[in-house]
Design a binder for these strands. Structure first.
Lengths: 239, 239
DNA sequence: TGGTGGACGATTGTCGACAATCCTAGCCAC
DNA sequence: GTGGCTAGGATTGTCGACAATCGTCCACCA
């Protein structure tokens, strides 16, 4: 629980010999605060307050906000400030649907051009995932899961698709952990990944496409479940 | 009306006195200047010069630049300014490939839920396209072509996919007109659109997916041709 | 009592100035 | 002549202050 800013924020990072407080830094911090849930959806982001929180000038905050706006993490209205963007249930589902078509595309490409080195790296990741499942470590599994998919992207070697997927990911990250809480989901997910791995080993594009589609269909189902349970017990109420 | 600060400045931004020079406006202008090709790829964008060109303060320029950076139209390096992003041949192809998988997805959805009103609007657009083809009006056809596709997006009613596609479009727009210059391409394109229309009328998702895939495959082929010819006679040399 | 208009506080949008950084050109030693 | 080093110009990053705008509250009047 790295509580980095002890509230009062270092007002004068003066001794800045060793750390150039470049503007892109406040962007990362603010972004992290949003995706980690420290700022709740729909919460107002007043520039003056962020100034104090992050110990940066209003200019940097403002720049970060426009970036996050373009990225879809916050919304801004003319002369009325910014707030953390609330992603509707429908939009979460749609995001996942787009992810499906792109990941299928990348899975197919990856299967057709995978090298032995790529395959070895994937096997390693899969092995680590199996261990996390046995240990019941949902968080660790979730992170390795993301790595598994990213390795496939890298194998497919398709920059544009990877970029688009990465930008989509940041929006749905809020549900990421919640989905793994579904009983038995981790084991199921692991089996689906094994099927993908089989198709990759065989360098079978069609099979890999199908396996990935099957996997992501279950992901969407689980996402629907997560949205349901969230509505039943709104641990974090907006507003 | 509200000519704000007469002071030092506006000896020549005069031409526009009637509109409130809101910041988002300079963003649109700058963006237009880039996609229209008035600024060539790789050209440096010095903030002070843009200030004079658009009659806006450096703050507005700067904000516009960060937006365009996030959007992928310009690149910025730390302390080294911004330049118009040069989209490599490979990236142009990849962008089109991503467009293919997304448009196929939307075409399928559209076929499954199209209403008679949607269909009528599409028929109108198609009719206008036929006329442009007969007149040999490549520019007009190209614009209607874009409209045709956007109507399909609207029918599919999938916000996320439409947004992603729109953001991709801005990057490949530079080739848009060039591709229509290929002899016989307009007629070929028209036939492909007719096939899509047939599938939509029949509300056949599979057929619509296939027709769209066929169409976009040819688009990629034409794009490859456009890149080839561009290399042969580089009308606009970078640098 | 209910509605209307103006004033005030809060917040955002914009500008000019200053500090930090990078690039280039010229100088000097070898 | 070559290589490194320093000074200067050019350009970007950041800060503080001011103007513009929005929302709200309250007095005032029919």
């Amino acid at each position: 629980m790295t509580t980095r800013s002890p509230l009062a924020a270092p007002p004068r990072p003066a001794a800045t010999a060793h750390r150039p407080p470049q503007g892109g830094d406040t962007y990362r911090e603010l972004r992290e605060a949003i995706v980690s849930g420290r700022f709740q959806p729909n919460q107002r982001l007043v520039e003056a307050e962020l100034t104090k929180l992050f110990g940066a000038g209003r200019t940097s905050i403002r720049s970060a906000l426009t970036r996050l706006d373009q990225e879809g993490l916050v919304t801004r209205e003319q002369n009325r400030g910014a707030r953390v963007r609330l992603i509707s249930d429908r939009e979460a589902i749609e995001t996942e649907q787009v992810r499906i078509v792109l990941e299928r595309f990348l899975a197919r490409s990856a299967a057709e051009r995978i090298t032995s080195g790529d395959l070895a790296a994937l096997e390693d990741t899969a092995q680590a995932m199996r261990e996390r499942v046995q240990q019941g470590d949902a968080i660790g599994y979730s992170e390795l899961n993301a790595r598994f998919h990213q390795r496939i992207w890298k194998t497919a070697d398709h920059l544009v698709a990877s970029m688009v997927l990465a930008s989509l990911k940041s929006q749905s990250i809020r549900f990421q952990y919640r989905t793994m809480l579904r009983p038995g989901r981790a084991e199921e997910s692991m089996r689906e990944h094994e099927a993908i791995l089989v198709a990759l080993r065989a360098r079978d594009g069609d099979a890999c496409d199908a396996a990935m589609a099957d996997h992501l269909r279950h992901v969407v189902d689980t996402l629907r479940w997560a949205i349901e349970t969230q509505h039943r017990e709104p641990a974090w109420s907006a507003h």
